[in-house]
Design a protein around this nucleic acid. Structure first.
Length: 274
DNA sequence: CGGGCGGCCTGGAGGC
DNA sequence: TGCCTCCAGGCCGCCC
């Protein structure tokens, strides 16, 4: 589901729709997500507080509340957030409901329950166990070719696995990893430590460009991704290799291959990606 | 320690 | 129609 551009898109919608709103109460209908949802804790920390801003770290959505509390939401593979009128019928898998003012509710829906919802005091941000090990943000200036080059020295893993490793760089998911490597002309199986500086520079440029373009398109819609309003993104039309096994490579026309790396599908062109 | 892999879940697609 | 298998965009934690 949501990769970084999708999460970014949802953050933008959230910022436009719930900043200044008070979260009056949190109703947990199903607490068995990736981690057990602590309903009393959520209500104690979140209940009655006003949303001051929306942030993001990797694929975690950070709802900043007045008084120094952060509500952190991860959409996992199938999570969605939606704004609904209070009292409208709940959908299957609506696990957590945030009651807002003005007769509205923000609902967290997640069929596969791989996501998470929790709240903590802002002072714990820098030591939070889910955040503390995270690497650089791919769309920030801190991520550049020389950084990737330095980080990858001595690594024997395939470059695709490397750029998907959140300890190094966050937010590069399975779809965009394939797409960025195609754009950079790099074979996904190449060991990260064997990339030269110029290829690292090129790869970082491609990662940024692909992610930025996807953000502008509102994310990629495959299966269940949807924006706050239920609308979808349009980047899927621009995917060059992902999900196109057997189709002609946009560069040379030869067949796109699918291989499995670390239990994930990788799509690439044998001729264009060396 | 780095790196590979299983597991968490539901549901959609496709084969028979 | 149903039953089966495979597949899915994330991430942690266990293993070597």
């Amino acid at each position: 589901m949501p990769e970084l551009p999708e999460v970014q898109s949802i953050c933008k919608s959230l910022a436009e729709s719930i900043i200044g709103e008070v979260i009056h109460r949190v109703i947990v209908r199903e607490s068995g997500l990736r981690w057990e949802v602590d309903a009393p804790g959520l209500n104690r920390l979140v209940g009655g507080r006003c949303v001051s801003s929306i942030g993001r770290r990797a694929k975690y959505i950070l709802v900043h509340l007045e008084g120094g509390v952060i509500l952190m939401i991860h959409l996992g593979m199938s999570g969605r957030l939606g704004l609904h009128p209070s009292g409208s019928p709940l959908a299957k898998h609506d696990h957590v409901v945030f009651e807002l003012g003005g007769g509205r509710e923000l609902r967290y829906n997640d069929p596969r329950r791989f996501g998470m919802v929790e709240a903590f005091e802002k002072s714990h941000y820098w030591t939070h166990p889910r955040l503390v090990h995270l690497g650089v943000e791919p769309l920030e200036g801190e991520f550049e070719g020389e950084v990737l080059y330095r980080l990858s020295r001595k690594s024997r893993v395939a470059v695709k696995s490397f750029i998907m490793d959140a300890r190094r760089v966050v937010g590069v998911g399975n779809i965009y990893a394939s797409e960025a490597l195609f754009a950079a002309g790099i074979n996904p199986k190449t060991r990260a430590g064997r990339l030269g500086l110029s290829r690292c520079v090129r790869l970082v440029e491609c990662i940024k460009e692909i992610l930025n373009r996807a953000v502008l398109s509102g994310g990629t819609t495959l299966r269940d991704f949807a924006n706050l309003d239920g609308g979808s993104g349009y980047f899927s039309e621009q995917l060059q290799v992902y999900g196109r096994e057997g189709e002609g490579c946009p560069g040379c026309g030869s067949g796109i291959r699918r291989v499995v790396q670390s239990n994930r599908s990788t799509y690439y062109c044998v001729k264009c990606q060396r």
